[in-house]
Design a protein around this nucleic acid. Structure first.
Lengths: 141, 141
DNA sequence: TAAATATATCTTAATATACGATATAATCTT
DNA sequence: AAGATTATATCGTATATTAAGATATATTTA
């Protein structure tokens, strides 16, 4: 199989999997909120400047987004100890929970699929995800 | 490994993979537009009523969304032959292309990852995606 | 001490999203 | 054939989201 054909198939399957297995009753969370929360999750914490840069918006906008998420209880902030000008934005547990509902596969759905398959297939999937995410991190991070 | 732990790991890896490998310079496409285009892609075509139901909005809203996407050239419509009241909305090639940029992994990034890994690892990934998407279809469709 | 940095707030404007009211055309029911 | 139902389209209205310039405050650096 040609690599490009394989990539095309993987991509189609990727979207099929998400389409079928994602959470469907989600709290309303805006697109930029999701992006912001996810950046924080993947990086552990973020300054307003980080967020502005990552979202490709002005610092004012990033600050406003953050303010709204703080109000909703999805993030909190702590002032930097080395440089008190800096504010580090971190996820609350509620924020993490809400983020997962917007970005992850539905646990119950995924479980249903995995328990109904041959255990060595499930193991293959486990391994494949580990390899692919590791590969992605090595190559692109 | 406990199934729930495995699911947690898969989910974390799932989001890591997407975070690292998705297209990053995307044309501006609204959240509802993406959802609408994707519904059409996964189903081949859709009526306004289908779209309204899937998006959980009124038919007026679905019709307006569709109108805007038609204007952008991302979808087109054809009147049903059995029932001419019905309009079937289908993706244009441009629509498909734009949708893929918002929902799929970046081909070049994915390729970079796959060619740098052991070929049997790549084969494992190919197989795993096929199995998982097939499993999802069987269980949840 | 002045300049630079980091963030916060306010104001303004554009865009996204939604739905009720209304209208038209097609199909179904009586 | 007429009336009712179905499917969609358009218009008007409203709210939420998004964005950035102007301005302000606090902290750090030169």
């Amino acid at each position: 199989m040609q690599i490009d054909d394989m990539i095309e198939m993987i991509n189609e399957q990727w979207t099929d999997i998400y389409y079928l297995l994602h959470y469907t009753n989600k709290d309303n969370l805006t697109h930029q909120a999701i992006r912001l929360l996810q950046y924080i999750e993947k990086n552990g914490e973020a300054t307003i400047g980080d967020l502005a840069e990552h979202l490709a918006v002005s610092h004012n906008t990033a600050s406003e987004h953050t303010k709204r998420l703080i109000k909703k209880g999805l993030v909190s902030k702590k002032r930097g100890s080395l440089d008190e000008r800096k504010v580090f934005v971190v996820l609350t547990e509620e924020g993490r929970h809400i983020l997962y509902r917007h970005t992850r596969l539905d646990k119950e759905k995924l479980k249903k699929v995995l328990v109904q398959m041959d255990p060595c297939d499930a193991e293959l999937i486990r391994k494949a995800f580990a390899i692919l995410s590791e590969g992605a991190k090595k190559c692109l991070r």
